[in-house]
């Protein structure tokens, strides 16, 4: 035991163990950031809704159930068919999506109003003779309680939009609150890019700082919902694609957010401004 080299060996083994621990934790963090549990939630929602159909049709009287898909990180499409539920990931690029289905029993005296919904919130109506589903507007959510406050005079924000009017509107709204507008994303605390999209209602894309991005997108979304309560049915937050033209713009600033809205107008522009202001408030 007290031979030459045994002390060095102990130090070496300790270092190896520490290195193994660090590598293990890094892999764990990397994998957990990469994965999401959408598949689990699709199975869960399909079964939950299928069983809800059975229960609703057996119940007496009229029932209205508010349901939501907010646990799934990606938007889901819900199809109510005659004798089963279908749920799949919303992706316009995929022509034949993989369906998660679950059956329920029908009653010959109850009509099933088949429908296809792309919504985070929807209502299910049961009455003595029919079952219907309808989408509901997004509701405000609780945002992460991260401390992101910053004095406006020292907060540089880079703003860009494919609509010059909206860009000017947001810049002026931020200047009124004493934020500093910069033309260089590299110097900015926040790079904000706002675009119109033909796709679903409201998309947020980020490059880094996941929790801060979640908070910012949540605040902007809540503000848009408050100002436009009937306008939005689906919203999602995801990492920006590598081949996106705005990736570097988002990456160069301390925090970057690309907001895509399908009904971009002055009201939405003001709501986005208010959301950014409350983020730094």
């Amino acid at each position: 035991m007290n031979k030459k080299g045994s002390e060095r060996k102990a130090i070496f083994l300790t270092a190896m163990a520490l290195l193994g621990l660090i590598v293990g934790l890094a892999i764990f963090k990397g994998v957990s950031n990469f994965l999401d549990d959408t598949t689990y939630w699709k199975i869960y929602y399909a079964r939950d809704l299928g069983l809800l159909m059975d229960i609703g049709m057996a119940a007496r009287g009229d029932i209205e159930i508010n349901y939501n898909f907010i646990q799934a990180e990606k938007p889901l499409v819900f199809k109510l068919k005659k004798q089963h539920i279908e749920i799949y990931d919303y992706n316009p690029e995929i022509k034949e999506p993989v369906l998660t289905t679950f059956r329920f029993a029908t009653d010959n005296k109850i009509i099933i109003g088949t429908n296809e919904l792309l919504a985070s919130y929807f209502k299910i109506f049961f009455s003595e003779d029919k079952v219907n589903v309808s989408e509901e507007p997004l509701e405000q959510a609780l945002c992460p309680g991260l401390n992101t406050s910053s004095a406006p005079e020292f907060t540089l924000i880079f703003v860009k939009s494919d609509n010059p009017e909206i860009e000017e509107l947001i810049k002026n709204g931020l200047k009124i609150e004493n934020f500093v507008i910069t033309l260089s994303p590299e110097l900015a605390s926040l790079s904000l890019v706002v675009q119109k999209t033909e796709k679903e209602s409201l998309n947020f894309y980020y490059e880094k700082e996941t929790r801060r991005s979640k908070k910012l997108s949540c605040l902007i979304k809540n503000q848009i919902i408050e100002d436009n309560p009937e306008g939005l049915f689906i919203s999602r937050l995801e990492k920006i694609e590598d081949n996106s033209e705005w990736k570097n713009t988002l990456a160069n600033a301390k925090l970057g957010m690309l907001v895509k809205v399908n009904n971009l107008n002055n009201e939405i522009g003001k709501s986005i401004t208010k959301g950014v202001i409350s983020y730094y408030g």
Binding site: L51, I55, A59, A105
Partner: peptide
Amino acid sequence: TIEREIFFNRIIYSTNA
């Protein structure tokens, strides 16, 4: 288990059953 319970309840309590 829950599917079976729902089926039982549907037989017993459903207005049309």
